[in-house]
Amino acid sequence: MPSAASKTDAGNFFEDFTLGRKLVHATPRSLTEGDRALYTALYPSRFALQSSDAFAQACGLPSSPLDDLIVFHTVFGKTVPDVSLNAVANLGYAEGRFLKPIRPGDSLRAESEVIGLKENANGETGVVYVRTKGFDQSGATVLEYVRWVMVRKRVKADPAPAPVVPGLAKAIAAADLVVPDGFDVKGYDFALAGAPHRWGDYEVGEKIDHVDGATVEEAEHMLATRLWQNTAKVHFNQHTESKGRFGKRLIYGGHVLSLARALSFNGLANAFQIAAINGGTHVAPLFAGDTVYAWSEVLDKAETSNPGIGALRLRLAAVKNRSAEGFPLKTAEGKYEEGVILDFDYWALTPR
């Protein structure tokens, strides 16, 4: 007779991953206006297109889409039980594209494929690379991205597979960005959006200090991990993490990303949609009580298939417990400066 324990799942350890393994993630999730409201409660996000049906309809859209990072967090959360339940840290992202706007009433599910494996020198952990796709209720792909995560080994002495590190593009080509169908810039109200700055007002190399800071509270972080159904032990379980490397729970890296994106409104209010994730690194941990500041650098500019919309390639940097003054990122030796917690490279769509 099988034991009761055989019915439970302790999650995958590094040894459980094999190259090419397909993972169908459980628990599809229907998104509602409640998700929009909770997202706004958690992060100081003020982008007009994601806040108002009337604003979106004036721009030729049927209604206001949900924030792109709601979609990202929802899909990401589906993957956690299979990919990163036993993670030490989520390390980075690449080759991400947002392919279809999501609105209240849409349901999302996710699948991943293991595309790379590499044991770490300590023999206690390894890095797992997965390509994840999110689908809506019709089966259409709405989001795709690669991420890599450091996962604990079950037994240090277990043999490791030959290392495979996938080659990843440094950036999504501007020609591959998906822009909203029917978007008409003539209906875009810059006063209601909160700033007058168009695509042509930004210059490559320009840096923008977003000025504002946001202190992270334990309750907010726990609400967010539950909202996205993110059950990774490093974020969710103080009992286990009190004995871990830091002695306390880590703030979910996506929480940092959403805070930094929301803070970027002050200076990039008209960068209304994330179109692609070129790359991202969670540089250092964040804990409850820390305060997050952010700044951006314009890396590139491109035209899109819609003559009314331009694309800005932006580097979004988040720092903790220090302002963005001086735009700290890396030292002369190429190491990240003290306090840098996020280095995120993405394409944003902006009215021309």
Rank of each mutant, 00 (worst) to 15 (best):
T32G: 14
T32R: 15
T32S: 15
E33K: 14
E33V: 12
E33W: 11
G34D: 01
G34K: 05
R36E: 08
A37D: 15
L38W: 11
L38K: 13
L38V: 09
L38M: 14
Y39N: 08
Y39T: 08
Y39S: 09
Y39P: 03
Y39E: 12
T40R: 14
A41V: 06
A41D: 15
L42Y: 11
L42W: 08
L42Q: 12
Y43M: 13
Y43E: 03
P44R: 07
S45W: 02
R46Q: 13
R46D: 13
R46P: 04
R46G: 03
F47H: 14
F47W: 09
A48T: 02
L49A: 07
S51F: 09
S51N: 11
S52Y: 05
S52D: 08
D53V: 08
D53R: 12
A54F: 05
A54V: 12
F55Q: 02
F55D: 00
A56D: 05
Q57T: 14
A58V: 05
A58L: 03
A58K: 06
A58H: 04
C59S: 04
G60V: 05
G60D: 07
G60C: 09
L61E: 02
L61A: 01
P62S: 13
P62L: 08
P62Q: 12
P62V: 15
P62D: 13
S63F: 06
S63Y: 00
S63T: 12
S64R: 15
P65Y: 10
P65T: 10
L66F: 10
L66C: 04
D68Y: 07
L69Q: 12
I70C: 11
I70G: 06
I70N: 05
F72K: 06
H73W: 10
H73K: 14
H73S: 15
H73N: 15
T74M: 10
T74I: 11
V75A: 07
V75N: 11
V75Y: 07
F76T: 06
F76M: 12
F76C: 11
F76K: 09
F76P: 08
G77P: 04
G77Y: 05
G77C: 06
K78Y: 03
K78E: 05
K78T: 03
K78C: 10
T79E: 03
D82R: 04
V83W: 02
V83T: 14
V83R: 03
A87Y: 00
A87T: 08
A87F: 01
V88I: 11
V88S: 13
A89H: 08
A89Q: 10
A89R: 00
N90K: 01
N90V: 03
L91D: 02
L91C: 13
L91V: 01
L91W: 06
G92W: 09
G92A: 10
Y93I: 00
Y93P: 01
Y93D: 02
Y93H: 11
E95S: 08
E95T: 01
E95D: 13
G96R: 01
F98G: 05
F98W: 05
F98C: 14
L99S: 04
L99W: 03
L99V: 05
L99R: 10
K100T: 01
K100D: 05
K100I: 09
K100H: 01
P101Y: 11
P101D: 10
P101Q: 12
I102Q: 04
R103G: 14
R103I: 02
P104V: 06
P104M: 07
G105N: 08
D106L: 00
